[in-house]
């Protein structure tokens, strides 16, 4: 039996990598992928705690999270596509995209 700490450490590492990517990368696609990483880090924690407690609620939550994440990615990609169509860039630091704030 693998101790639960291992799973938690894996989740924490994945979350840290995702957070780092979200904050530093300027490519919007990469940022979206990093967000997925963070979500999956949380999913690992859910499953691990579910197995540790011996119930299925953790797994049920993960199914929910995956479906919501899929929807969110679809929306995110759609926004990016339209932004790209309008501004011809997917660089988040580009003035073409930062000027969309107001």
């Amino acid at each position: 039996m693998i101790p639960i700490e291992y799973f938690l450490i894996l989740g924490a590492i994945l979350f840290a990598i995702g957070a780092y990517g979200v904050v530093t990368k300027s490519n919007a696609i990469v940022v979206l992928m990093c967000i997925e990483l963070m979500l999956n880090a949380a999913n690992i924690n859910f499953v691990a705690f579910g197995a540790f407690n011996g119930d299925v609620i953790g797994q049920a939550f993960v199914v929910m999270t995956i479906s919501v994440a899929a929807a969110e990615v679809a929306v995110g990609i759609a926004i990016l596509l339209n932004a790209y169509k309008l501004r011809k860039t997917n660089d988040l630091d580009d003035a073409e995209l930062t000027s969309m704030r107001w």
């Binding site: 979200v22 904050v23 940022v31 988040l92 995209l97 930062t98 704030r101 107001w102």
Partner: peptide, 17 residues
């Protein structure tokens, strides 16, 4: 207050984190 909106998504996510 709207001047705080830089337009950089990363700034927002940093604040959240």
């Amino acid at each position: 207050v709207s001047k705080m909106q830089t337009g950089h998504v990363q700034d927002y996510s940093s604040v959240v984190l």
